[in-house]
């Protein structure tokens, strides 16, 4: 047991590579290829008969919680959602298989991005053993085929550093800004209305929302020149109006999910006071999805 605990701490990460982050060609290449990995159809209007938008949100919320609880790398969840959407855009899927698909997508995304990927057993336990590891492995193959083995999709997370580096931001706030941007990106991934947006737009909108949310833009107006949105739009070649709309949409989703989160918490607290509520409080704290509650509004 001790051995396992020690192993948990040895996550190896590469340091930020200035050759990648400071070269403009990298950002340009990301912008060029990102559209290739978008789902091809708004699948609720055709391909899917059994699955409703709210079910996508259910499975997405569950996936986010699993990723949070397992302390996955930030990009695992958005990448898994990219796989899920791309699969659902081409394969009619039954409601009862949606969680299996979600688990498979996390399995794949985690293997691509992490030094210690999620295991099939763990993921099956998270489905409350409604699926078996063998089934997960079988469907992994099916999903891979449908994704044409194109797993290295561009995610909004790929743009964060490129955008943040090009903005005049106070050093001491960078870590906080990144955290908030990541939270916004995860939030967007849970909401189907963002599924067809290019990742660069989601990233840019999230950076805008994070800076506005932390009120960094009003602290020193002069350093932003005319407008934060104009500057952001230039970095990722996004149209200003579209970007503004995207940022507002992100802020709306945040507000509604905060409200929902609060309601859910109250419900949980009520149920926890029931027969076997002991010890659950701690878990509740640690597994609350994202740091949304810390975001200043």
């Amino acid at each position: 047991m001790e051995l396992l605990c020690l192993e948990m701490d040895t996550i190896i990460r590469a340091r930020p590579d200035p050759n990648l982050l400071c070269d403009d060609r990298v950002l340009q290449s990301l912008l060029t290829i990102e559209e290739r990995f978008l789902p091809q159809y708004s699948y609720f209007k055709g391909v899917q008969k059994d699955i409703q938008p709210f079910m996508r949100r259910m499975v997405a919320t569950w996936m986010l919680e699993v990723c949070e609880e397992q302390k996955c790398e930030e990009e695992v969840f958005p990448l898994a959602m990219n796989y899920l959407d791309r699969f659902l855009a081409v394969v009619p899927t039954k409601k009862c298989n949606l969680q299996l698909l979600g688990a498979v997508c996390m399995f794949l995304a985690s293997k691509l991005k992490e030094t210690r990927p999620l295991t099939a057993e763990k993921l099956c336990i998270y489905t409350d053993n409604s699926i078996r590891p063998q089934e997960l492995l079988e469907w992994e193959l099916v999903v891979l085929g449908k994704l044409k083995w194109n797993l290295a999709a561009v995610t909004p997370n790929d743009f964060i550093e490129h955008i943040v580096r090009r903005l005049p931001l106070p050093e001491d706030k960078l870590a906080l800004i990144r955290k908030h941007v990541q939270t916004f990106i995860a939030l967007c991934a849970t909401d189907f209305s963002f599924a067809m947006y290019p990742p660069s737009m989601i990233a840019t909108g999230s950076v805008g929302a994070a800076i506005c949310g932390l009120q960094l833009d009003s602290a020193d107006q002069s350093q932003w020149g005319d407008n934060l949105t104009d500057l952001l739009a230039k970095i990722t070649n996004t149209e200003v109006d579209v970007l503004k709309e995207c940022q507002e949409q992100i802020e709306r989703v945040l507000v509604s999910s905060l409200r929902e989160g609060r309601q859910q918490q109250q419900q949980q607290q009520q149920t926890q006071r029931g027969p076997s509520g002991k010890g659950l409080d701690e878990l509740d704290q640690s597994s609350t999805p994202t740091d949304v509650r810390d975001v200043n509004l």
Partner: peptide, 8 residues
Amino acid sequence: GQARRNLF
């Protein structure tokens, strides 16, 4: 935790 659940 609460993440362990069967959705559908």
